[in-house]
Simulated assay, not measured.
Amino acid sequence: MPKPLNPKCQLCSKLPTSKAKVLHGTQGDGCWNPKVCHNRRSFYRRRTQNENNGTEIDAIAVKPPATYFAVLYLYKEPGDKPLHALGAELWLGQKPVCRLEPIHCFGLTAGKIRAYTDQVLQAFAKQYDVSLYQYKDMFEITSSYCPVRPCPLHPQS
């Protein structure tokens, strides 16, 4: 029985090599192995092309419903680590319409963070005259991708 395909490698094969090395190299998650990754990426790319060439299926387009929803971005390390930063976005259908630029959470208690995220929801609701009771989704992003500058994780050179 053949070995199952690795979804992580499938996604990686679609990236340019330079980005793949950054995401999965020593600065990323550390899974990049130059002895096997080049061949494996080529295998996954060719496999995807062959699957797409073999069978052609019809596609239709149906406009998705345009509803407002908010998402919360949490910049933190995996596990039970403290929150480094947070940001939020308001979406209408498939497009973001408003963004709260991320802020650092140093010195903020869990209660203050909760109150702040509730204020953000209220601000989105007031600005666009919609009802928002909670965030539709929360995404945890590793703190090394923190976009706030200046940041202790990214000292100025």
Rank of each mutant, 00 (worst) to 15 (best):
L23T: 02
Q156K: 15
T142I: 13
P96T: 13
E56Y: 13
A123M: 13
Q127V: 05
H84Y: 03
L92A: 13
V62E: 06
R40Y: 06
P155F: 01
W91C: 05
Q156R: 15
N33S: 05
P16M: 03
R41D: 11
H24R: 01
L86S: 13
A61C: 03
Q119T: 12
Q134C: 08
G111I: 11
L74D: 11
G93K: 15
W32E: 00
C12W: 00
H38C: 07
Y116H: 13
R41S: 09
D137R: 15
K81I: 01
T67W: 07
Y145S: 01
V120N: 03
K21Y: 05
N53G: 01
V62S: 02
L74W: 08
E77C: 13
W32K: 01
Q10N: 07
N52C: 06
E51Q: 08
A85N: 11
P34K: 00
L100Q: 08
A125E: 00
L90C: 03
P78K: 12
S131A: 10
C105V: 09
S143G: 07
T67Y: 12
T109F: 01
Q119W: 12
C105G: 06
T67E: 14
N6F: 09
G28M: 01
A61I: 09
D29E: 06
K3G: 02
A61V: 13
L92E: 09
K8S: 08
A125R: 00
L108Q: 05
L132C: 04
C151H: 15
F69Q: 09
Y133D: 06
A123E: 03
L92P: 08
Q156T: 12
L92G: 02
P7T: 07
D129C: 11
N6A: 12
L132A: 00
N52H: 10
Q134N: 06
D118E: 15
K76E: 05
A85T: 06
C9P: 01
I113W: 06
K21R: 12
V120S: 04
T117S: 08
P102L: 08
G30K: 10
P96M: 13
L108V: 00
T48P: 00
V148C: 06
P96C: 11
A61M: 07
G111C: 04
L11G: 14
G93P: 07
P147V: 00
G54T: 14
N50S: 05
M1D: 15
A123H: 05
Y44A: 01
A70Q: 05
I103D: 03
T109A: 10
L90D: 02
P2L: 03
I103H: 08
H154M: 11
I60C: 04
A110N: 14
L5T: 07
R114T: 13
L83N: 10
H38I: 12
L92W: 11
G54A: 15
L92Q: 14
R45S: 04
Y73Q: 08
P4T: 13
E140L: 12
I57T: 14
Y75S: 07
D58H: 12
P82T: 09
A85M: 05
A110I: 08
N33Y: 08
S42R: 12
Q122P: 02
K81L: 11
A59F: 15
A70D: 03
K81N: 07
R45P: 02
R47M: 05
M1W: 13
S42E: 13
L132D: 06
I113N: 06
D137N: 15
D137T: 12
N6M: 09
Y44G: 08
T142D: 15
Y68G: 00
